[in-house]
């Protein structure tokens, strides 16, 4: 999957990344973080806009910079980097809103035939995990590198 994506910078443990979205709204810095959870080897993936004045991160703002595909491709490339350098981890993700979760689902659907060569991909539906299938309104996702 060779999609255009933004250049990533990261700290040395490769758990926090930053990139800059470019579009009609100008340059918007974004942060991706793989956070440890209560279980060793199980990480939460989240990303949001960085406020340059406060340094705070907002994952609910809708920046509408016309580059959502490129943003998602950049997040996917961070997942490849993270799972390449952290063996046997699970990466969990869900949107901060239902609309965002649906956007993530659409992104996975678009590339699933290629992504599943490299990852086990699961969707959460009605309190259970199942192998990701297209066109199902999952609540969350979890992946693991093959």
């Amino acid at each position: 999957m060779k999609l255009p994506h933004y250049e990533l910078i990261a700290e040395k443990t490769l758990r926090v990344y930053e990139f800059t979205s470019e579009g009609p709204k100008g340059q918007i810095p974004k942060l991706i973080k793989f956070s440890e959870t209560a279980l060793k080897g199980y990480y939460n993936l989240a990303f949001g806009d960085k406020n340059l004045k406060t340094g705070n991160i907002d994952d609910k703002v809708v920046s509408n910079n016309g580059d959502s595909e490129q943003v998602l491709a950049t997040v996917v490339s961070a997942v490849y980097m993270f799972t390449e350098t952290h063996s046997d981890v699970w990466v969990y993700a869900t949107g901060s809103t239902k609309a965002r979760t649906r956007l993530y689902r659409m992104g996975i659907t678009k590339y699933i035939d290629e992504v599943k060569n490299d990852f086990y991909v699961f969707g959460q539906l009605e309190g259970e995990w199942e192998e990701f299938q297209k066109d199902i309104d999952y609540n969350a996702f979890v992946v693991r590198r093959k």
Partner: peptide, 17 residues
């Protein structure tokens, strides 16, 4: 072929850990 991006290291991001 491994689809791994080239990443520049910036340790100022450590504060977000």
């Amino acid at each position: 072929d491994k689809k791994i991006p080239i990443v520049r290291i910036d340790n100022s991001l450590e504060k977000y850990l």
